[in-house]
C-alpha cells in the first residue's frame, strides 16, 4: 500500500502505481467539466515548497490542489540560503507549526524531500530533487503511454538524452520497468551513468540502435543550467546525433509516439517538424500531469504519521 509520502517511484510497487493511475483516469473527467472543482479537500492546506525554479510542475500542482478545493500556498524560497541541511529542517519545523496537510517539495539537491519528510507529520510529495527522482512526471508519462497504447506491459521505450543528470529518466526507468516495459536509454557516453544497467535497462550510444522497433521515444530536455561545457561540448553536435527528427524516427515502430517532459528546446531534442507533428501527445502529458497530481493529493492528503491524534487511520466506508 502507498505510504504516507511520495518520494520516489523506487518506493512504489506495481499495485500502488496501478491505483494512482486508476485514480488519475477518473480525475481527468473533472478537467472536462464546466465547473472544474470538487469539494474533496475543502479546508485542507497544501504548500508548494519550490527551492528550484519551475513553472509547469508548480502550476500543475497548484491547479491540481485547487481543483480538489484545497488552499494552495506557494512558498518561494531562495535556494542559496537553504542549501544547508540545518535551514531546511528549520523550514520544515516552521511548516509543521502551520498544520499543513501536504507539502510539495522541489529542490536542486537529491534527498531534501526525504529530509523534510523525516521531520513532518504531514505527507511530503517530491516534485523533483536533484538528479534523484521526479515521481509525478513518471506517473503522468505512464498515464499518457497507457492512454495512447492501451497498455504498458510488453512495450519498448527508449529514453534519449542526458541520463546521468536526469531525475525524469530515473523515475521513468523505475516506473516503466515496474509496469513490465522494456526500457532502453541512449545518449552521449559521458551522459550515461556507469552502472545504469543494474536498473534493468539496456544502454546505447547509437540512437539508431536504441530506437529500433520501439513503441515510445522519450526525449529528455538538455538542461543547459546544469551542464558545463565539459558534459556537452556542442549543442549542435548533440542535436545532430541525438536530436529526434522524422528521419531518425523511421527506425521506431510506425505508430511510435514521441514524448518530452517539457519545456522543449526546439531544434535541439526534437526537430521543429516533430514538435508540431503530433503536439497532442506532449500536451496530453501536461493534461495528464494535472490528473496524476490530483490523484496523488487525493490519495495522500489526510495521511499523517501514526500516532497523530488528528487522524483516524481506519478504512471504513460508511456512506
Amino acid at each position: 500500500m502507498i505510504g504516507r509520502d511520495l518520494l520516489g517511484i523506487e518506493d512504489l510497487d506495481r499495485a500502488d502505481i496501478e491505483r494512482i493511475l486508476e485514480t488519475a483516469e477518473h480525475m481527468r473527467e473533472i478537467g472536462r467539466r464546466v465547473i472544474k472543482k470538487v469539494p474533496t479537500l475543502r479546508g485542507r492546506t497544501i504548500v508548494n515548497l519550490f527551492f528550484e525554479s519551475s513553472t509547469r510542475t508548480k502550476s500543475s500542482f497548484e491547479i491540481a490542489g485547487k481543483r480538489l478545493s484545497a488552499d494552495v500556498i506557494n512558498f518561494a524560497a531562495a535556494a542559496s540560503s537553504l542549501k544547508k541541511a540545518e535551514s531546511i529542517l528549520d523550514t520544515a519545523r516552521n511548516l509543521e507549526a502551520m498544520d499543513l496537510d501536504a507539502v510539495v517539495v522541489r529542490h536542486a539537491v537529491a534527498g531534501v524531500p526525504k529530509q523534510i519528510a523525516d521531520v513532518l507529520s504531514a505527507p511530503v510529495i517530491n516534485a523533483g530533487d536533484g538528479a534523484h527522482e521526479h515521481p509525478t512526471q513518471a506517473l503522468l508519462d505512464l498515464l499518457t503511454v497507457r492512454r495512447e497504447k492501451g497498455r504498458i506491459d510488453g512495450l519498448t521505450i527508449a529514453i534519449v538524452g542526458d541520463i546521468l543528470h536526469s531525475r525524469v529518466a530515473r523515475s521513468n526507468i523505475y516506473a516503466f520497468r515496474k509496469m513490465g516495459a522494456e526500457v532502453r536509454v541512449a545518449g552521449p557516453p559521458q551522459m550515461i551513468p556507469a552502472a545504469i544497467e543494474t536498473l534493468g535497462v539496456k544502454a546505447f550510444t547509437s540512437l539508431r540502435e536504441a530506437i529500433d522497433g520501439v513503441d515510445v521515444v522519450m526525449a529528455l530536455r538538455i538542461q543547459n543550467e546544469r551542464l558545463t561545457g565539459t558534459y556537452l561540448p556542442s549543442v549542435r553536435e548533440y542535436s545532430a546525433t541525438y536530436g529526434i527528427d522524422r528521419e531518425k524516427l523511421k527506425f521506431a515502430k510506425d505508430d511510435a509516439i514521441v514524448m518530452h517532459p517539457g519545456p522543449v528546446n526546439r531544434g535541439v531534442e526534437l526537430s521543429h517538424d516533430l514538435t508540431d507533428h503530433r503536439p497532442g501527445v506532449i500536451l496530453d502529458q501536461v493534461r495528464n500531469g494535472v490528473a496524476v497530481r490530483m490523484a496523488v493529493l487525493y490519495l495522500l492528503s489526510g495521511r499523517r504519521q501514526e500516532g497523530d491524534p488528528r487522524v483516524d487511520l481506519g478504512s471504513g466506508e460508511e456512506k
Binding site: 491505483r19 486508476e22 485514480t23 474533496t40 489526510g302 499523517r304 481506519g314 478504512s315 466506508e317 460508511e318
Partner: peptide
C-alpha cells in the same frame, strides 16, 4: 467522511 478517514476510497 473524507475529512476523517486517512484511507481513500476508490473512485
Amino acid at each position: 467522511d473524507l475529512k476523517i478517514k486517512a484511507e481513500r476510497p476508490r473512485l
